[in-house]
């Protein structure tokens, strides 16, 4: 398999404040900055790689995060996740613009990085250091990109109904690939509006995603996670290697996540944002699957795996 030679673009910082704030950016170690057009020259003169950027002219990403039902104390009260991965997959090639509240900058950087898309993030200024730390982490883990791996091929008609299905598949970690036409490489091919997948059924995307899971079967799923309902995954690979991206959308750390991946991988290496010397626990590869525990996830972690 071919490794794509180009590394992903790292998320950029959109900074509206004037050049008098340059010391803060320098202190954070930031050299490249996206600014309103009228500030571009001043920032360049201050020694920055400044790029004029208008958020209104780019695709808008939702502020990522989790919303809980605080009134219901039950394990079955699945929290809602605001995530953009499904949008990235059906709108390839766009540059995405984030505008996020306090303490969400790292998440807004991890998400587009995991999907290999270009994104610029407008953040709460006190989060500048958080931005810089995540940027340093992404630089450290950055590798040539591999193709996305998925179980389900979805022929995208561009409709809102299909979009909601993609959203719910992503929410439930049912890995999919957006297609122009059915592709036999996938375990399941879905064209909404077909006899097997009528639009009326897809209009209830939660139940529809459950149906696809049932048809696929859990045994065939490339990735399953246990121990959290606020972590979404993305998997890339080339047949010999795989990279599993784990994005924690909650405001607090996940203490332990068990992962089951289809296929036997000889070894796995963990890198976790904000956690030094992170290492996988209880690693086992047998019976056609690999399992391991990720001890802590702050916002984002990647696991690099090598096959037998």
């Amino acid at each position: 398999m071919i490794w794509f030679l180009l590394a992903a673009l790292l998320p950029g910082l959109y900074w509206e404040q004037g050049v008098e704030t340059a010391p803060a950016l320098k202190k954070a170690g930031l050299q490249r900055v996206y600014v309103p057009a009228e500030h571009e020259q001043a920032w360049r003169a201050a020694g920055f790689t400044a790029v004029a950027f208008d958020p209104q002219r780019h695709a808008k990403a939702e502020a990522p995060g989790v919303q809980y039902r605080l009134s219901v104390a039950s394990a079955t009260s699945v929290p809602w996740i605001d995530a953009n991965g499904w949008r990235f997959q059906r709108n390839v090639g766009k540059t995405w613009s984030y505008s996020v509240p306090a303490r969400k900058a790292a998440l807004a950087m991890a998400e587009p990085y995991a999907y290999g898309v270009d994104a610029v993030v407008r953040l709460d200024p006190p989060d500048l250091d958080l931005f810089a730390r995540m940027l340093a982490f992404l630089r450290r883990i950055d590798r040539p990109r591999m193709p996305a791996l998925a179980n389900i091929g979805i022929v995208d008609d561009g409709s809102d109904v299909t979009g909601e299905v993609l959203n719910l598949l992503a929410r439930r970690n049912l890995l999919f690939k957006v297609l122009m036409a059915p592709d036999p490489r996938y375990d399941l091919n879905v064209r909404i509006g077909s006899k097997e997948y009528p639009e009326e059924e897809a209009a209830d995307p939660y139940t529809f995603a459950g149906k696809l899971r049932y048809q696929l079967t859990d045994e065939k799923r490339l990735v399953r996670i246990y121990g959290s309902d606020v972590v979404l995954v993305r998997l890339t690979g080339d047949g010999e290697r795989a990279r599993l991206h784990l994005i924690n959308y909650a405001n607090r750390r996940v203490n332990g996540l068990r992962v089951r991946m289809l296929g036997e991988y000889r070894a796995g290496e963990l890198a976790a944002f904000g956690i030094d010397n992170a290492a996988l626990l209880d690693y086992a590869a047998r019976d056609g699957a690999t399992e391991f525990t990720v001890p802590d996830i702050d916002t984002y972690a990647v696991v690099d795996l090598v096959k037998r």
Binding site: Y226, G227, S228, N255, G256, L257, R258, L281, D282, A284, E291, T293, P295
Partner: peptide
């Protein structure tokens, strides 16, 4: 919800 003190096997 923390699972680290449970037996994964």
């Amino acid at each position: 919800g923390a699972i680290l003190k449970y037996d994964p096997n």
